[in-house]
Amino acid sequence: MVALVLLTGVGPFATDAYLAALPELRRSLDTSATVAQLTLTAFIIGMAAGQLLLGPVSDVRGRRGIVLVSTLSFTLLSLLCVVASSGGVLVLARLGQGIAAGTGVALGRAMVTDAWQGTQAAARFGSIASVTFLGPVLAPAVGGVILDHGDWRTVFLALTGLGAAMAVAALVGLPETLPAHRRQAGGPREAVGRMAGLLRDRGFLTHLTVLCLAIAGFFTYIGGSSFVFQTVYRMDEARYTLIFATNAAGMAGAGLLFRVLVTRLGAGPLRAAGVGASTVATLALLVVALVDRQTAPPLAVPWALLAVVVTGMGLTLPATTALAQEAGRHSAGTAAALQGGLGFLAGALVTPLTGLLGYASLLPLAAAMAVFFVAASGVLLVLARPRRGFSVTSQP
């Protein structure tokens, strides 16, 4: 589990660890702000590509070899970031680093599916999720501490050490979980066929749709809440960071609660509770925003409602991941690739939504979030089959 947490958690951590150093990075490399920001965009694109491309390959070649190559690649590419002499080199290194990190995310999910079944697998997803949820929150703070004693290259040097720890943990702690007799036929055509087959499967498609809609609502909050709070409530960055970190802690706590409750209640009811809580909270936020468009409600009101939204995601994400992986167990790597890749792309596409709709009031943020979470609830009510959830099973 330590190896799996590192494998799936390093990517989210590496996304944000150096954000505070972007201005310094631009000056140091004598490049533009656009190129500096491209180092982040390239990593996100790489994360999605790594999951979509190498998840299906692992169904053919096995997991362990690809995991070892990806962890070693992440370490070496992090070192390349340390010594990068230009913005272009750093962008390319970050793209490769993202591909390696995305590969780890997809294969980590697939290895859980290989090694455990039913609610035991779901419990492991809950444990992994509760740690990885904290990555984007802790990364800027840890990066800030590192920057107090170094520069942006020092941050990537720390990521190099983290990558080395991940590689050692994978080498020591992760056996091959997909034996040869369970592997799929090789070739791009077969990989596309497996993806198409999963997307035609009603159960898997339902889980994937719910996941993408919930992630879209969540990333709308991530991309827009800072603008809304700082514009509507004249909030400085430190106060907003406190709000964001508090909400993220609630999500991590919900992930731990999921770990405890899933063996008793099952993943389906816990997902329904998570999606329902987020939907009700966003609708309440929409009502609050509509009641008086001219005067902002007291800060405690949107803070509390958004905390409920984010905490609900702590149940929704691990539950939906577990259910989708169970539905796609026969091609676990491909299932993980579709979940991670398409979910990541959905989040990336909606992140600028609040900027397009406006952030002079709570209304655009609340309306956009409500659309996505109501749609997720609608998919659950119309398409999902709650009684097809899985029960407690023993480890193979």
Rank of each mutant, 00 (worst) to 15 (best):
R239I: 09
C212P: 04
L242R: 14
G217A: 05
Y221L: 13
A216P: 00
E237V: 14
R239N: 12
F219H: 06
R259S: 14
R234I: 06
I243W: 07
E237I: 13
A214I: 09
S225V: 09
T231D: 13
F219S: 02
G223V: 09
A249W: 03
L257Y: 02
R264K: 14
L261E: 06
F244Q: 05
V260G: 06
V260C: 07
A245E: 04
T246D: 01
L256K: 12
T231Q: 14
R234A: 14
A248M: 15
N247H: 03
M251Y: 07
V260E: 10
F227P: 03
A248N: 14
F218V: 05
V262M: 03
E237G: 11
I215H: 08
G253I: 04
L265K: 10
T246N: 01
R264I: 04
L261W: 13
S225W: 06
F258P: 01
A214L: 05
D236T: 11
T263D: 10
T263E: 11
T246P: 00
A254C: 08
T241E: 05
T231Y: 09
S226V: 12
A214G: 10
A249P: 02
D236G: 14
A252Q: 02
Q230P: 08
F227N: 11
F229H: 11
F219Q: 07
R234D: 14
A252T: 02
F218E: 02
S226K: 10
G217N: 04
M235A: 08
F218H: 08
L213Y: 00
G266K: 04
G266C: 03
R259P: 02
G253P: 01
A249R: 04
A214M: 12
Y233F: 15
Y240Q: 06
Y240S: 07
Q230W: 08
F219N: 05
R264T: 07
V260I: 13
M235G: 07
G224A: 09
I222E: 07
I243Q: 10
A248L: 11
Y221K: 06
A238Y: 10
T220R: 08
I243M: 13
V260R: 15
V228P: 02
T220P: 04
A252R: 01
T246L: 13
F229D: 02
F258Q: 03
A216L: 01
A254Y: 00
A238Q: 15
R264W: 03
M235E: 04
Q230K: 14
G217S: 05
T231N: 14
R259I: 06
T241V: 12
R264M: 03
Y233H: 13
L261S: 09
A238F: 11
A216T: 03
M235L: 15
